[in-house]
């Protein structure tokens, strides 16, 4: 029998781990036997390099930056403890509002578009056709290179004045020039870059789609349901845990958008602060303005915001996500 759609998506990620943990809650509570403890020891020993690495390079710096966020630490001159002053100052900082606006706009545009694109392509690629493997690889390709410096530079060239985008759109009466120099639309360039790299959610959607039991469709067809009805009443509900996972991951990623924005817009988020992403501003505060304390406070505000957004999503998911086989839902 095909695995039920409750199985965690194949990508080894936090949400996947949570689902796994949930399933094993009962089992884990039992006291491990002696040989099991030996296994544990071996397991942890093999994990030591990773644990040390994450303590030194992730947890340590994070705690340090949490401390810094309560100081007026200047990258060169040092600083003193100032309590919540940084967090207060943020709300009077005109750049804070701008950075938040740009980032939210990006999240709102990029996440749904990217998910729609990846779902659409995933549905095409789960059909049984000859050579489908080639297409799957081909559509995944952009995701491998897109967040690279080279791709950002290519993107920059595509959207330059008189570049391909400008020339193409001019055919239809566009007079806004290249996206790069036009603050009204420059963010679309980054949205498109993100949409184009739909490979990761696409693969996850494909895995989800392949796990929807075929008999449901057959039964629906027998009852006379059309393509659209089958999609809305079978595919979407059965896929909802995977959709939820993808929405969550993509949203969290979108909030952290940095690389391409930094390469295309620079530390100033050019043109005219239209690509001044929250993370780009953090970078500029820390390494151009040298205000490490304040930059840390910004960073922790982002952690907080992403945390709250995630929490809201989990709450919303309770009613929206259907886990087959879990009747208490």
């Amino acid at each position: 029998m095909t695995a039920p759609p409750t199985a965690a998506p194949p990508a080894a990620d936090e949400a996947g781990a949570t689902a796994q943990a949930k399933k094993q809650k009962g089992a884990a509570k039992r006291r491990p036997s002696l040989s099991r403890r030996g296994e544990l020891l071996t397991g942890y020993t093999f994990m030591t390099p990773w644990i040390i690495g994450s303590l030194v390079f992730t947890v340590g710096p994070m705690l340090w930056s949490l401390y810094l966020s309560f100081t007026d630490y200047h990258l060169v001159l040092g600083g003193d403890f100032i309590g919540f002053e940084n967090y207060r100052a943020m709300f009077e900082d005109p750049m804070f509002a701008r950075a938040v606006k740009v980032t939210l706009l990006y999240v709102v545009l990029a996440v749904p578009l990217k998910l729609l694109a990846s779902l659409a392509v995933a549905m095409l690629l789960t059909q049984k056709r000859r050579g489908i493997g080639f297409y799957r690889a081909a559509f995944y390709m952009p995701s491998l290179i897109a967040m690279s410096v080279g791709m950002a530079l290519v993107w920059k060239a595509l959207f330059a004045a008189d570049g391909p985008q400008d020339q193409f759109m001019s055919l239809f009466g566009w007079e806004g020039g290249g996206f790069i120099g036009n603050p009204d639309v420059s963010i679309l360039m980054l949205v498109l870059l993100s949409v184009w790299t739909f490979g990761a959610p696409m693969v996850i959607f494909m895995a989800g789609l392949l796990q929807v039991p075929g008999e449901l469709y057959e039964a629906a067809e027998v009852d006379g349901a059309g393509k659209w009805h089958r999609f809305v009443h079978i595919t979407i509900p059965m896929l909802s845990p995977v959709i939820f996972f993808n929405v969550l991951m993509e949203t969290v990623h979108a909030f952290q958008m940095f690389g391409p924005a930094f390469i295309i817009g620079g530390t100033a988020g050019g043109p005219a602060w239209s690509t001044l992403f929250y993370t780009v501003r953090i970078y500029a505060l820390a390494f151009v303005d040298l205000r490490m304390g304040y930059a840390s406070a910004w960073a922790w505000m982002l952690v907080l915001a992403v945390g709250v957004v995630t929490l809201i999503m989990f709450r919303a998911a309770k009613n929206l996500v259907y886990y087959a086989g879990e009747d208490n839902r």
Partner: peptide
Amino acid sequence: AATGAIEVKFGEIYQQVQ
């Protein structure tokens, strides 16, 4: 010491005028 940052800011803000 802040001149480097101020110089950057000067250009950034003037861009708003442009």
